[in-house]
Amino acid sequence: MFINGLMLLGIVPGKSAAILNFLVGTMQVVFPTLIILQSNGDPAVIFGAAGLYLFGFTYLYVGILQMTGISGEGLGWFSLFVAVCAVVIGYLQFTLTADPVFGVIWWVWAVLWTLFFLLLGLNKSSLTRMTGWFTVFISHLTGTIPAFLLLLGRYETNNTLAVWVAALAVASLVGAYFLGRKSMRSSAEPGQAASVAPAA
């Protein structure tokens, strides 16, 4: 996620990011399949693993676009489908697994996938840099930090922490919006290109 954010900001070339997208995407398709096959039909285990497919297919799709250079409308509309799924999964985290922090995290991911829908599915290229900054910010808020806490056995979840995560996510979105606008103004100055880098 972090690398793809940097790609949208024009820092990492698309083909360079594609390698990691193929690697991570493959892992997030193979691993949940293995987990589900060994789950003995346990609904909780299946639910916990199934969401990884949404990321896996997204990363693989992004990698293919980066390597082939084809247009991203298909990925954009797929992102809308994934955003809806993420909203549902987030709700189930609150009601089914009593994990409000991951409920909020799934809703933050729903916002990100919605931005990808607007950017790629509806060709709102003015959102490129905003989406890039938001991706960079939440890659740590929703990925790096929770992962380290889980590995250390320090992960906690309650409504208060969920509110903090939500507040940081909103701050990330606002910051990304203003950084994106600033970048757009700079690129539109005389003597500079007015277009933004393509997403894929």
Score class of each variant (00 low, 15 high):
1 M>K: 10
4 N>V: 07
7 M>K: 08
8 L>P: 05
8 L>W: 06
9 L>E: 09
11 I>S: 06
12 V>E: 10
14 G>K: 09
15 K>E: 15
21 N>K: 07
26 T>K: 09
26 T>Q: 02
29 V>K: 01
30 V>R: 10
33 T>F: 06
34 L>H: 09
38 Q>W: 13
39 S>A: 14
40 N>R: 00
41 G>T: 14
42 D>P: 01
45 V>L: 15
48 G>L: 09
48 G>P: 13
50 A>D: 07
54 L>H: 04
55 F>W: 13
56 G>L: 03
56 G>Q: 01
59 Y>D: 03
59 Y>Q: 13
60 L>K: 05
62 V>S: 15
63 G>I: 03
66 Q>D: 12
66 Q>V: 03
67 M>D: 11
69 G>A: 07
69 G>K: 08
69 G>Y: 04
70 I>D: 09
71 S>E: 08
71 S>H: 14
72 G>C: 15
72 G>W: 01
76 G>I: 11
77 W>A: 06
78 F>P: 01
78 F>Q: 03
79 S>F: 05
80 L>G: 02
82 V>C: 00
85 C>M: 09
85 C>L: 15
87 V>K: 06
92 L>D: 13
93 Q>M: 15
94 F>E: 06
97 T>F: 12
97 T>G: 13
98 A>M: 03
99 D>C: 12
99 D>G: 06
99 D>I: 11
100 P>Q: 02
100 P>C: 05
101 V>K: 07
102 F>V: 02
103 G>F: 11
104 V>E: 13
106 W>N: 11
107 W>H: 12
107 W>R: 12
108 V>E: 07
112 L>R: 04
112 L>D: 00
114 T>A: 09
115 L>G: 13
116 F>L: 05
121 G>K: 02
123 N>E: 14
124 K>W: 08
125 S>M: 04
127 L>V: 15
127 L>N: 12
129 R>I: 08
130 M>R: 09
132 G>Y: 14
134 F>I: 00
136 V>S: 01
137 F>A: 10
138 I>R: 00
138 I>L: 03
142 T>Q: 08
145 I>E: 04
145 I>D: 00
146 P>I: 10
146 P>L: 08
147 A>T: 15
149 L>R: 10
150 L>S: 10
153 G>Q: 01
153 G>K: 01
153 G>Y: 00
155 Y>F: 14
155 Y>R: 04
156 E>W: 06
157 T>C: 10
157 T>D: 03
159 N>V: 12
161 L>Q: 12
161 L>S: 13
161 L>C: 08
161 L>K: 12
164 W>S: 14
165 V>R: 06
166 A>G: 14
166 A>P: 13
166 A>W: 14
168 L>V: 11
171 A>H: 09
172 S>R: 01
173 L>V: 05
174 V>I: 08
175 G>R: 04
178 F>Q: 04
179 L>G: 02
183 S>G: 08
184 M>P: 02
184 M>L: 07
186 S>W: 08
188 A>N: 01
188 A>E: 11
189 E>G: 01
192 Q>P: 05
193 A>V: 09
